[in-house]
Simulated scan of single mutants.
Amino acid sequence: MTSSFRIRPATSRDIVDAAETLGLAFADYPFTRHTVDSRDHRDRVRSLQRLFLTEIGLRCGNVWVSDDLTAVAVWTTPSSAGLDAAFGDIADQVTDLYGDRAEMAARADEATACLRPTDPVWYLATVGVAPASQGRGLGRAVLEPGLKAARDQGYAAYLETSSPSNVTFYERLGFEVVGSVPLPDDGPKVWAMLRT
């Protein structure tokens, strides 16, 4: 895969703008709409993404961004250290941001746990492109470094999505659906996808 976009590893200076990009990209995403309080929804989603970028992506994983910060991809890897501690550190803040949907979010997480691989994988934790920049190939471009690294290290890449159009997008990148589950509480369907 090649791209004409400049993609680079993220730094702490990128957090605010990268979180804004992810907040915009996920504001109306089916899973997010289902699991994040509708009051101040966009602010909550942006804050969740900022926490995730800071405490999971940059602290424990790998984050790539487009140079203009309109595309962001966050991965955890088999070598990601300290994930349990990092998730523990932000658990209360995440619950607060889920707001009145916190119990639904917990049930959604329980429902999708059965989909996750037991073998080590590169896990695509989140990826997003600012709506105004979509359709130009930025999504594919920002995913390339993680897909290449997973392949070079001999690992599969794994993701979950609740958007049917995303399934088609990821299939074009070599992912295959390996399972799905409807979320409880009348939630959306979630597909698990693997690229070997």
Rank of each mutant, 00 (worst) to 15 (best):
D109Q: 12
A141S: 10
Y123R: 12
A86L: 08
R140P: 01
V45T: 10
I90Q: 05
G99E: 10
S133Q: 09
G139T: 05
L48Y: 12
Q93C: 06
Q49C: 14
Y123M: 07
A130Y: 14
Q93L: 12
V65D: 01
A73G: 02
S47W: 07
V94N: 01
T76N: 04
D100G: 07
G137Q: 00
G139N: 03
E103K: 15
R101V: 02
R50A: 05
V129T: 14
L69W: 08
M104T: 12
A86E: 06
L97N: 05
E110N: 05
P120E: 05
Y123G: 01
V74W: 10
A113H: 07
D109H: 07
S66A: 10
A71T: 03
A85L: 12
G128C: 08
C114S: 14
D67I: 07
D43F: 11
L115H: 15
R46L: 07
D119P: 01
A73F: 13
D109M: 09
R44A: 02
P131F: 09
R50K: 13
D119I: 11
L53W: 08
E103P: 01
D40L: 14
L58K: 00
R42M: 08
L51C: 11
S47V: 01
T95Q: 11
D67W: 05
L124Y: 14
L83R: 13
G82T: 02
W75F: 11
D92K: 14
R42P: 02
L69K: 02
T70W: 03
L53D: 07
T77K: 03
M104V: 11
Q49R: 10
A108Q: 03
R116P: 05
W122L: 08
P78L: 09
L97F: 03
A130M: 11
L51P: 06
A111D: 05
D67R: 03
G137L: 09
S79H: 07
R107Q: 13
G128F: 11
V129E: 08
L115E: 13
S47H: 07
D43T: 11
G57F: 02
A106G: 04
A132T: 14
A102K: 13
R101P: 00
V63S: 02
S66E: 04
R44H: 03
R101T: 02
A132W: 10
A105L: 10
G88R: 00
I56D: 04
Y123P: 01
R44E: 02
R44K: 07
E103S: 15
G61K: 02
V65Q: 01
T54A: 06
D89G: 12
D89A: 15
L69P: 03
S47I: 00
G82D: 06
C114N: 06
T118M: 13
R136A: 10
L48I: 10
P131E: 09
A102V: 08
D100E: 15
G61V: 04
G57T: 00
V45K: 08
P78E: 04
T118R: 15
L53P: 01
